[in-house]
Amino acid sequence: MTIKAVLFDFSGTLFRLEHDPSWLTGVTDHRGDPLDVEAQAELMRRMTAPVTLTVDLDDEHLHAWHHRDLDPTLHRKVYLEVLRQSGIPRVEQAKALYGKLVDPAAWTPYPDAGEVLRSVSSSGISVGVLSNIAFDIRPAFAEHGLDAFVDEFVLSYEVGAIKPDPEVFRIALDRLGVAAEHTLMVGDSEEADGGAARLGCAFALVDPLPTAVRTDGLLTALREHSVL
Results as ranks from 00 to 15, higher is better:
126 S>Y: 15
112 D>G: 11
115 E>D: 11
129 V>F: 09
101 L>E: 08
100 K>Q: 13
104 P>I: 00
107 W>C: 03
120 V>T: 09
128 G>D: 15
112 D>F: 05
122 S>Q: 15
93 Q>F: 09
113 A>H: 00
131 S>N: 08
95 K>I: 15
119 S>D: 04
113 A>K: 01
132 N>F: 00
119 S>L: 03
100 K>R: 14
93 Q>K: 06
108 T>W: 02
108 T>L: 02
118 R>H: 05
119 S>T: 12
127 V>Y: 04
128 G>L: 14
122 S>V: 04
123 S>Q: 15
113 A>F: 02
131 S>A: 10
117 L>T: 08
113 A>T: 00
116 V>W: 00
117 L>M: 07
108 T>R: 03
123 S>P: 13
91 V>G: 02
120 V>E: 07
93 Q>E: 13
111 P>K: 02
112 D>I: 00
129 V>Q: 08
93 Q>M: 03
104 P>R: 04
131 S>W: 13
100 K>M: 11
108 T>Y: 06
125 I>K: 09
121 S>G: 15
124 G>L: 09
120 V>S: 04
93 Q>H: 05
114 G>I: 00
130 L>V: 05
107 W>V: 03
130 L>G: 09
121 S>W: 14
109 P>T: 03
114 G>E: 00
131 S>M: 13
130 L>S: 01
125 I>V: 10
96 A>G: 11
110 Y>M: 01
111 P>R: 02
102 V>N: 14
111 P>W: 10
128 G>P: 10
126 S>G: 14
100 K>T: 12
132 N>L: 04
97 L>M: 14
111 P>S: 08
126 S>M: 10
126 S>K: 11
117 L>P: 11
120 V>H: 05
109 P>M: 00
94 A>S: 13
128 G>M: 11
125 I>D: 03
99 G>P: 10
127 V>F: 08
111 P>I: 00
118 R>D: 04
102 V>H: 14
126 S>T: 15
111 P>Y: 07
130 L>D: 06
129 V>I: 08
116 V>D: 03
100 K>Y: 12
96 A>T: 13
